[in-house]
């Protein structure tokens, strides 16, 4: 059954406010960049078609609000994610320190079936700023953290210059695909449908 195979991959981008989540997504999907900070409200996604091993996939990339006050409905959209991208700003120690919180929060809320092996990708963004002079998180430190969390792939990116964005999303897509296919195995083939297939009427008649 060809349609059993996944063609839609869901990716969630998380990280502190202002690290460049929206910019990374825009750079990857639209090849556009704006220097101006604009907050994201709630959750928003863009899609992009990707070719992988002769197959076409739709990558559904969810950009999220880094500011908690713009996440009033909660994070139900985490569910069903195939890969989670954690972004920090290499010029902000705090944004790096918070990666752990974002990762844990994601694992709790998304409750993937195999949290140990759920694919994350870490991006250290804004490497272009001030020619790297204002950088406070070293690549070594970031890589050490990634290694300690089960060898999370790590990329240093610049959404502004488009550095490593394509490469990072290649890996993101590959990991998402892998996790998606493994997930597939656990899908039950049949479900007991005899009990109540009638739509229950609740709410108004509109």
């Amino acid at each position: 059954m060809p349609s059993r195979r996944r063609t839609l991959l869901k990716v969630i981008i998380l990280g502190d406010s202002g690290v460049g989540k929206t910019s990374l997504m825009n750079q990857y999907v639209n090849k556009k960049f704006s220097n101006q900070y604009k907050a994201t409200i709630g959750a928003d996604f863009l899609t992009k078609e990707v070719q992988f091993e002769d197959r076409l996939f739709t990558l559904q990339i969810w950009d999220t609000a880094g500011q908690e006050r713009f996440q009033s409905l909660g994070v139900a959209f985490y569910r069903g994610a195939d890969c989670c991208v954690l972004v920090y700003d290499v010029n902000s120690m705090k944004s790096f320190d918070n990666l752990n919180n974002w990762r844990e929060e994601f694992l709790i809320q998304a409750s993937p079936s195999d949290p140990e092996n759920f694919p994350f990708v870490v991006l250290g963004n804004k490497i272009d700023v001030d020619g790297g002079n204002s950088r406070v998180v070293s690549e070594k430190k970031a890589r050490a953290w990634c290694a300690s969390k089960g060898n999370i792939p790590y990329f240093e990116t610049s959404a502004k210059e488009g550095i490593n964005v394509e490469e990072a999303f290649q890996v993101i897509a590959k990991d998402a695909l892998k996790s998606g296919e493994e997930e597939e195995i656990y899908l039950p083939d049949t479900i007991d449908v005899g009990s109540s297939s009638q739509p229950r009427s609740s709410g108004c008649e509109c």
Partner: peptide, 14 residues
Amino acid sequence: LRDLVGKNLHILGQ
């Protein structure tokens, strides 16, 4: 529910 409303402004901003 507020972010559902605010989302429109986010889209405008983008």
